[in-house]
Every structure is written in C-alpha cells, then in structure tokens.
Design a binder for these strands. Structure first.
Length: 466
RNA sequence: GCCGCUAUCGUCUAACGGUUUAGGACGUUGCCUUCUCAAGGCAAAGAUUAGGGGUUCGAAUCCCCUUAGCGGCACCA
C-alpha cells in the first residue's frame, strides 16, 4: 500500500509554493497507486509557531484540490496527525533509545554550547556538539524536567548509505554527523525524531520531500536502525529556485501558494506548471490535466536539477487554461474569484455577456476588472483628451441615435459610414470612440462592447463629453 | 571551511552510446490577420551539450579531474 505524506510546519503565513510542489508529487503518486495521502502538521517549534497558519495551509491545499485522505481535522487510523498531540509518544521512544544505548542525556547549557561553537568557528573547525555528555552515562532519575535533552549517539567511523530513489546510493561518513538533539528540553521532539517515529507509525511507504532533507537523512537512517524498523523509500525532490538560481524565497518571488490564487491563477494551471518542474510529459505536451498527469507520471522520471520558477511561463499557462475553459465555467470562476478575493458581487448576466470578449485577453482572473470595469461604471478619467473632438462626437451621437438595431454589426457599419463621409483615419477615429466609451485606449472589441452596454448607455456616455 | 547533490538555448526541458546540421515549450524579434489590446498562423534568432582529460569504431549520453551553482552543517523545520 502506497502511503505518502507532506509535513508542513505552521511557521509561515501559508503554504509555501515549494511545499505545494512537494504536495503535488506526493498526491499524484498516491492517486496513481491508489494509496493514501496524509497531511501531518509538524508544530514542534513553539517559538516560531504562527497562529492560524495551520488552517491556512489546509485551506490552500484544499483550494488547489490536493485534498488529503488523512489530516488533523479529518483524522484517520494513525492519528492524531498533529505532532504537538503526540508528545508522549516521542518521549517514550526517546527514553527507550537511551536505554538501548543509541542515545544519551545531555545537560549542557545553551551558554556552554554557544561558547563551544564560537571557539570552533574561531579555529575554523566545523561547529558541532563536542560530545561532552556522551560518556557521562547520565540517568533519567538524576535529571530534572526541563534541564536535559536527548541526543543521538552517532557511531564513530562508519558509513551510512542513503538509498535515494532518484540518486541511488549516497554515502555519508558518520564522523561528519553531529550528535543531533532528538528531544528538546521543553519535552518536544526535534524534526528528526518525530519524523522517523511518525513516518513509521503512520506506515508511510514513500518519504517524498525536498532535497534540503537529504543531508539529514543519515540521522534518520540511524534512528530506523536503532529502532529496528524497516525504512521507507526515500525520494528527495529538487528545490525550486528563484530566477537567479537561489532557493526560492519570498524576497525574490511571491512564495505563498495562496498568493497565486488571490491573483486569479487557476489551481489547475499552477499545478500543471509545477508538474513541469523537473519533469516533462512523455509526448512533450505542455498542457495536460491532472488525470493525465497521474496517468503518465512516474517518480523516477523526475530529474533532480533545481529548476528556476518562471512566473512568465506560468502566466502564459494560466492564459491557456482560461482560453480553454468553457464560458459557463469561466463565469463561475470569475464570479467566485471577485467575491472571495475582492468582496465584489458582479452581476451574473453581465459577466456572462462579457466573457467572450475578454476570454482571449486575460491572463489572470484579476485582469477581468482592468478590461471590463467600464461595463460596470461610467469612466471618470479618460486616457486621451477629447476636448477638441466635440464636433466629431456629436456626429457619432447622431449616427448612433438613428440606429434601430443596436448590434455590433450595425454599429460597425454606421461608424464606417461616418468615417467615409468625413474622410477620417479609421485608426484614430476608433481610438477616440473607444476612449469616449471606455475611458481607455485598450479595451475589448469596441462594437461588441457597445452592443452589450446598450444604446442609451452609449449615447449617455458620449453626450457627457459633448 | 566541511559534507552532499547537480551541470543541454535566457528559462522549463527532449534526445534506450550510433536515425542529431542537438528537438519542443515559454520568452524575444519579424511578417500575416486587425478599429486598440490580445488570441491565432508563419518564420527567425538563440546551445562549439560548463571546461579539460579519458573509455569506445562512435559520447550530450559512461569514468575521472577542475570549475560553477545549489542544499545541509541549530534545543528550526
């Protein structure tokens, strides 16, 4: 049974786009193998905990359609799925490790540790715990709660092999590994302890996570071996990069997944784009559905160079998705988007009428407003000064007024007639008319827009300028 | 600094050691279409496959070195 998980920690505003990528791969792998996808909240860092972050992460995941089969709210057979609710478990296992001789108690103070580290750095050594307490054989009964930590007793002079699905066997020298703290003095586990215990207990078959974890995997291997547990399959995914190739960060790119939603990116488009990070469709297709992705995707085809996240290509892809969607579908997406993100209730019928005009123009749902604002309210500012156009506008007014059928076609014919009569340049003429009606130099097709606005509204707008 | 991972157009990538004058997509430029902006169509530019050594009849593909980039080296995850 394939079981995968993502393990976000609620220490940021929201789900990081890199985590969304990891989530997508985990989710797709599970869907492909008819397994279970779990979300476990790693809230063991009490200092950095951000209020509300957990809810936001879960909501964002849902908004993107990557819903877990088991999570802290849904529960499941191996709950609880929030690490802060599993403290006792970690503590028991930590003490057990000490008893078995794979870990030890350490009472070094923060001050001492800092001093040791400072000295090491000064001597250009690798900053690392000096193993002061390693052979002291401290007994639990001698220790006061809150005054000690449990450290991993890393063996000396041994090779630790991490078998990574994408990289093959990666060898680490145990002498380069620190005696990692497993249980902190506040009784909370560190990531390393908790992740191993939970992945084992939750029967995770594939640990699919970002490459930044590769170097700490030897510690995890040591723990699996100490407990005598079977190891999961490890698969370390590439880390998404900024355009300058550094690790994707919020200083250089919007990194919160929900930001993309708030701009009016469609979830499927974002996911499609993310799927193309480090992977390509066997037929070199760029646009494909999630179902198709699941169908043809294979973990081992991911290649491990950290790809640069390209917002420009994402934008193109979003445009493709918008153009491909059914008008009725797009209508509800626009309605929902403006309601949720801009607190605007747009009239359904008007949105419906305008969609064909802007469908090929907008790249994000937010763009709808830039194009279509003028349908909803009369322009107040005009991008071109129309003061000396009054005589022309008057003639336009008269022409339009005579029209019995106010359709795009008739409007077009009437306007061309006028152009001919007055011997005008069409380009210039239509720009002036466009600005008069919409206030802008750029708009959806003018005749169609005027038809939608209706005769009286158009006349009103022109009259205002005469 | 130490450990580890990686290296194909600006970017995402394709190419089971030989069908390769290294293919596609985004972006860029030009043309067509056109009342604007788009969308669409057609072109073009863009990579001595990081550099250097091997192995091989043959290397983008396998091996080694160098260089560069990235990641990790917390009582953070």
């Amino acid at each position: 049974m394939v079981r995968t998980r993502i393990a976000p920690s609620p220490t940021g505003e929201d789900l990081h786009i890199g985590n969304l990528y990891t989530a997508l791969i985990n989710w797709a792998w599970v869907r492909k193998n008819k397994g279970k996808f779990v979300v476990r909240i790693e809230d063991t860092d009490r200092q950095r905990l951000v209020k509300g972050a957990e809810e936001r992460i879960l909501k964002t995941l849902k908004d993107f359609g990557l819903e877990p089969d088991e999570d802290p709210n849904k529960g499941g057979p191996f709950g609880p799925y929030r690490q802060s609710e599993r403290l006792r478990l970690y503590q028991e296992y930590a003490h057990q490790l000490v008893e078995k001789g794979f870990a030890y108690y350490c009472t070094c103070s923060k001050e001492r540790l800092d001093e040791v580290r400072k000295k090491q750095i000064a001597q250009k050594q690798i900053p690392r715990y000096d193993r002061h307490c390693r052979n002291l054989n401290l007994k639990k009964s001698d220790l006061k709660t809150g005054q000690y930590v449990v450290r991993l007793k890393v063996p000396v002079n041994s090779k630790i092999i991490v078998d990574d699905l994408l990289r093959g066997k990666v060898e680490f020298d145990s002498n380069n590994i620190d005696d990692q703290v497993l249980l902190k003095s506040d009784g909370y586990p560190t990531y390393h302890l908790a992740v191993v215990i939970d992945d084992y207990l939750m029967k995770i078959s594939h640990v699919i996570r970002a490459e930044e974890w590769l170097s700490s995997t030897p510690k995890h291997i040591l723990l699996y071996e100490a407990f005598g547990w079977e190891k999961p399959i490890f698969c370390h995914l590439p880390i998404l990069r900024n355009p300058d190739r550094s690790k994707l960060s919020k200083r250089k790119n919007p990194v919160w997944a929900s930001w993309y939603l708030s701009q009016g990116y469609l979830p499927e488009a974002v996911l499609n784009y993310l799927a193309l990070m480090g992977w390509s469709h066997p037929q070199e297709k760029e646009i494909f559905s999630l179902d198709e992705f699941i169908e043809v995707f294979d973990l081992k085809d991911i290649h491990i160079v950290g790809p640069a996240f390209d917002p420009v290509k994402l934008e193109w892809m979003n445009g493709e998705y918008i153009r491909q969607s059914q008008n009725s579908n797009l209508k509800s997406q626009i309605l929902n988007y403006f309601k949720e993100h801009h607190n605007k209730d747009l009239p359904e019928d008007l949105v419906e009428k305008t969609i064909p005009l802007i469908k090929e123009r907008i790249k994000q749902l937010a763009d709808y407003w830039d194009y279509c604002q003028f349908f909803y309210k009369r322009p107040e500012n005009y991008e071109v000064d129309l003061k000396d156009k009054k005589p022309l506008l008057k003639k336009i007014y008269e022409k339009l007024e005579k029209l019995e059928e106010f359709t795009a076609k008739k409007i077009g014919e009437a306007m061309m007639e006028l152009v001919k009569e007055e011997n005008l340049k069409t380009g210039r003429f239509f720009q002036d008319l466009r600005v008069a009606i919409t206030g802008k130099k750029i708009s959806p097709p003018l005749n169609e827009s005027m038809e939608i606005l209706g005769k009286s509204e158009c006349l009103e707008r022109i009259k205002k300028l005469i």
